[in-house]
Amino acid sequence: MHEWSVTQSIVEALLRFAEENGLRNITRVVIEVNQLSQLENDIIKEAFQILTRGTIAEDAELVIDEAPVSFVCRNCGYRWGLEDVLREINDAAKTHGIVDEEGTVDPPLHYLPMLVYSFVKCPRCGSRDFEIENPYSVRIKNVEGEK
């Protein structure tokens, strides 16, 4: 249920932004969530709805931007995507799993997506020296509202 804490921080950041910029209400928000976390959009949306209740973001539309994860090996130049390393990432839950309140065992990347460097290697040459296009966990990309 890490989604709740992520959403809570998004909502608080939004409300602070609105206050600092004199927004009367927030109508639309675009966030980007790193796909390596495998956070569930449905839970984020539900949490957002509940956590914004009674605030100026109550009626805001939440858009979750699913920018695809792409890797480039700095050693051999090979490019690959999330689907190619999903097994390694989820296998990490067996050895380094984090148990939540419901008993679900999540991989460490659920909480810290950039620990991907500890669990993934270049599928072609085996190097860990690769680049990730989007090395961020969670970002607010755009906020729309009325003054």
Partner: peptide, 23 residues
């Protein structure tokens, strides 16, 4: 979180881990 695995992070990815750990 990673046991004995190496942690070869650089730049923005490393900052992200530091920030995520604190947060």
């Amino acid at each position: 979180l990673v046991g004995k695995s190496p942690v070869p992070l650089r730049g923005a990815a490393k900052s992200e881990v530091v920030e995520d750990l604190i947060a």
